[in-house]
Amino acid sequence: MIQTIRGQNLLSLDNVSREAIVEVLDTAESFVEVNRRSIKKVPALKGRVVASLFFEESTRTRLSFETAAKRLSADVLSLAVASSSVKKGESLRDTIATIDALGIDAVVMRHQSSGAALQVSRYVPHVHVINAGDGLHQHPTQGLLDAFTIRQVLAERMGASGVESGSELFHGLRILIVGDIRHSRVARSDIAAYVTLGAQVRVAAPGTLLPADIENWPVTVVDSFDEALEWADVVGLLRLQRERGSGSFVPSLGEFTQTFGLTVERAKKLRPSAIIMHPGPMNRGVEIDSRVADLPEAVIERQVANGVPIRMAVLYLTVAGSKEEVVS
């Protein structure tokens, strides 16, 4: 169990303690303020080099990480490798050795293969490796920013401070996750974060989109999606991963929408206070109706915005690793 990510890698939320997660959320809170300034930059990582290595297409995660690194005054080496290492004829080990030879402190990495970030961390033990999504495995900064967003919204409603609340707002919080859990790295990271913070998590999906051993997961599978909607404080929707072949796991997108899409009708069953989340990019009209996505209860853009302070916090804690004042 990782007690703090200071000076560490961030590869998964599977083995990260509640204290370590809260530390990231609290650190991110201080960076929110930086992002509101007219000069959105602190010298925390001045002179440090962060490599951004994306083997798989990404817009928001990559922009978000690179923005975060720049706001911490780090230099960013950006390498887009949209093709697989096999097709390129270069092994993962050689690619990372090449980047490492340029002199880097951290690598932010996305890869289509589960475990790729962990493998890279073995090749370059002196570099901090931050997993920006690996195959179907984990997307830890997404899990952290989702938890951060929930805490932020709930704290605001109570007129309280997120930092002072710690993980208290999660105790007993009822979170429903809907959709393609089987193929979702976001679901694996979200569930790890929510359960660690003390929330109750239920999942709703067609049987084919649940992992084969869902009974071993710390979640409950709901019998009725509609009843679960009435139960939930938070509804987290997942992208139907058509690019991972999950199309053949449901008869049609239309049938999926009919049975597990958050339609306007279904959204009416939600409690008025329920928070609607989606990690993006959305398939509007598939897992979420366009009109629902634009409701005030939907915090989808806020999730995107929070990506920057969370990734600033993660970069800062892993790379700088010390306990001195974050924002001078």
Binding site: D14, G115, D134, L136, R185, A212, I214, N216
Partner: peptide, 15 residues
């Protein structure tokens, strides 16, 4: 192998 470990690791299993 398809099972608890593959599901946690996000690796497609061979049942």
């Amino acid at each position: 192998n398809e099972g608890a470990v593959s599901s946690r690791l996000g690796l497609v299993g061979r049942p």
